[in-house]
Simulated assay, not measured.
Amino acid sequence: MVLDIMLPGISGISLCQRIKSRWDVPVMLVTAKGEVSDRIAGLEAEADDYVAKPFHPRELALRAQRLVRRTDSSRVVVTAGVRLELDPASHDVIVGTERVSLTNTEYKLLAALISHPNSPLDFSQLLLMCWGEYDRHGDREMIKAAIYRMRHKLEAAVPGSAAAIESVRGTGYLLRADR
């Protein structure tokens, strides 16, 4: 989650503390406040990273990518009674007890979905999380095709497992997880 500190109505630091007390989600604070005391306050609020403005969009994207990769809990999820575990060494997913080979694109998309279970991710978010960009020509079609192929691979390994990846009409995708 990328969060600005200066929000209307609530401090981004307070919101960060609330989020971190309820969910295990990486939070990056972005702000014009770049003093050491501001950075310390943000990190004391349990933010995982702190970026002061001005920054280059690519820097923000790379930092977000690193946060997603570092989140170890983003490798395993139980969905529809089936355990999905990512294997970063081989770019495979273990569905129950079956190992399924994924393409690099499929693996990145599944990793993004697993890292945010039960949260819909729109196409822009998926692009940013997987490739560090948020606007590429043909992006929606590329994501749709990769999700389609991935669902078929999951379904072939363990019937019913593909239903965990839901389309969110007009938005993107969601991985429905039990925990």
Rank of each mutant, 00 (worst) to 15 (best):
His56Lys: 10
Ala145Leu: 13
Leu84Gly: 09
Lys53Asp: 13
Ala162Asp: 09
Gly34Asp: 12
Arg99His: 13
Arg169Gly: 15
Pro88Asp: 12
Arg136Phe: 01
Leu43Lys: 05
Ala80Phe: 02
Tyr134Asn: 06
Ser14Thr: 12
Asp4Asn: 09
Ser161Trp: 12
Arg140His: 11
Ser11Gln: 04
Ile13Met: 01
Cys16Glu: 03
Gly81Pro: 04
Ala157Leu: 14
Leu126Ile: 05
Ala157Tyr: 15
Leu121Glu: 02
Lys20Asn: 10
Val27Arg: 04
His152Val: 15
His56Cys: 06
Asp48Phe: 05
His116Cys: 07
Val2Arg: 14
Glu166Ile: 08
Thr97Ala: 08
Ala111Ile: 01
Pro88Trp: 15
Arg18Ile: 12
Cys16Lys: 01
Ser101Val: 08
Val25Cys: 04
Glu133Asp: 06
Val82Pro: 00
Lys153Pro: 00
Arg70Glu: 15
Ser37Lys: 13
Ala32Gly: 15
Lys33Leu: 15
Tyr173His: 01
Ile10Leu: 11
Val78Ile: 11
Lys33Glu: 15
His137Asn: 11
Pro120Ile: 00
Gln65Asn: 13
Asp135Thr: 07
His116Ile: 00
Thr105Ile: 02
Leu109Arg: 01
Arg169Asn: 13
Glu98Cys: 03
Met142Gly: 07
Val168Glu: 09
Ser21Thr: 02
Tyr173Lys: 00
